[in-house]
C-alpha cells in the first residue's frame, strides 16, 4: 500500500485542511450548495472533513426556476446525508412575479444575490464555503482562498486578507462575511476525475442525452446545453482533455514541498 500523494490526494488534503480551518475560525458557517458538480464535490469533501457529519448548515438559494432534476437530487441527498438544509428564497420577489422574462440580470440579482444576502443576514453567517474553481472565468480566478465581502457585496480589493495559511488570527468583522473557496486549487478535469474516483453522485443533467449535455447547471431558463455524446464520466473527461490543454501535476518534488509547507505551517512555521 502506498501513501504517496497523487494529484487528487493533494487537492483533497488541501481542501479538507481549508474546510476544517474555516470551521475552526468561523463556527457560524454554511456551505452554499447549488447542487452542481462543484458544490456537490465540495459537499463530499466537507463530509469527509467531518467524518460524515457536517457540523453546520447547507444553504441552497432557490430561485424557483431550477431544473426539476435539481430539486429531486437536492431532496434525495439532503435526506440520505442527513443535511441541515436551509432553503432560502427572496419571497417578496417571487411573489411579485420576478422571472427571466423581466430581465435576466435583474432576475439573477433578485433571486440569487439578494436572496443570499437576506439569508446571510437572517442566519448571521460569518463565512460561506463556496465551490469556486481556479479555472473559472473572470474575477473569480483572482479570488483568494478566503475573500471578504462587505455588506453591499462589493469587491474590496484593498481589504484583501492574506492567504489562508497566514490567516489564523484574522477574524471576520461584524459587517462582512468571508467567502472561503476550498476548491480554488482545482480545475474542471480534477473535479471529474475526483467525482469518478469517489463515485460522487451528481445530477443526470451533466450526462449527454440525445447528443446534448449541460456543462454547468442552474436555472432552467439560463442554462444552455452543449453538443456532446459524453454520457459517462470517462467520456466527459476525455472530451475536456481533448478540448483544452491542461497543465497537470508538477514535478514530484513540488508536490512534496507543498506538503512539507503544509506540515510546517500547521505547527506555526512560515
Amino acid at each position: 500500500m502506498s501513501r504517496s500523494l497523487d494529484h487528487l490526494d493533494k487537492l483533497e488534503n488541501q481542501s479538507i485542511f481549508i474546510i476544517r480551518e474555516a470551521y475552526s475560525q468561523f463556527r457560524n458557517i454554511a456551505l452554499l450548495w447549488s447542487i452542481g458538480k462543484d458544490s456537490t464535490t465540495l459537499m463530499w469533501l466537507v463530509r469527509k472533513a467531518f467524518f460524515g457529519k457536517i457540523p453546520f448548515p447547507i444553504l441552497h438559494i432557490d430561485t424557483t426556476y431550477k431544473f426539476k432534476e435539481i430539486y429531486d437530487f437536492r431532496d434525495k441527498y439532503a435526506k440520505e446525508w442527513g443535511l441541515n438544509l436551509i432553503v432560502a428564497r427572496n419571497e417578496d420577489a417571487v411573489a411579485n412575479g420576478m422571472g427571466p422574462d423581466k430581465s435576466k440580470f435583474e432576475c439573477c440579482n433578485q433571486l440569487k444575490t439578494i436572496a443570499l444576502k437576506q439569508a446571510i443576514a437572517r442566519e448571521k453567517f460569518k463565512a460561506l464555503l463556496l465551490g469556486i474553481r481556479r479555472d473559472e472565468h473572470g474575477i473569480r480566478a483572482k479570488e483568494r482562498v478566503f475573500s471578504p465581502r462587505d455588506e453591499d457585496f462589493e469587491w474590496d480589493y484593498k481589504d484583501q486578507p492574506p492567504e489562508l495559511w497566514d490567516q489564523y488570527k484574522t477574524k471576520a468583522t461584524e459587517e462582512e462575511h468571508l467567502r472561503v473557496h476550498p476548491l480554488l486549487g482545482w480545475i474542471e478535469v480534477d473535479i471529474w476525475d475526483y467525482v469518478k474516483r469517489e463515485n460522487i453522485p451528481i445530477p443526470e443533467l451533466y450526462f449527454a442525452k440525445n447528443g446534448k449535455r449541460f456543462r454547468s447547471i442552474g436555472c432552467e431558463c439560463c442554462c444552455g446545453p452543449v453538443e456532446s455524446d459524453a454520457d459517462t464520466i470517462d467520456k466527459i473527461v476525455q472530451e475536456l482533455k481533448t478540448t483544452q490543454i491542461s497543465e497537470r501535476s508538477g514535478r514530484a518534488q513540488d508536490k512534496e514541498d507543498d506538503y512539507m509547507m503544509q506540515k510546517l505551517r500547521s505547527l506555526g512555521y512560515m
Partner: peptide, 21 residues
C-alpha cells in the same frame, strides 16, 4: 513497510487537526 502499515504506523501526528478540534 508492510509490517509498519499493519501496525498502523504513522510518520507524524496530524497537527492540522489541532486547528479544528
Amino acid at each position: 513497510i508492510p509490517t509498519l502499515m499493519d501496525m498502523d504506523y504513522r510518520l507524524d501526528v496530524d497537527s492540522s487537526k489541532a486547528h479544528e478540534s
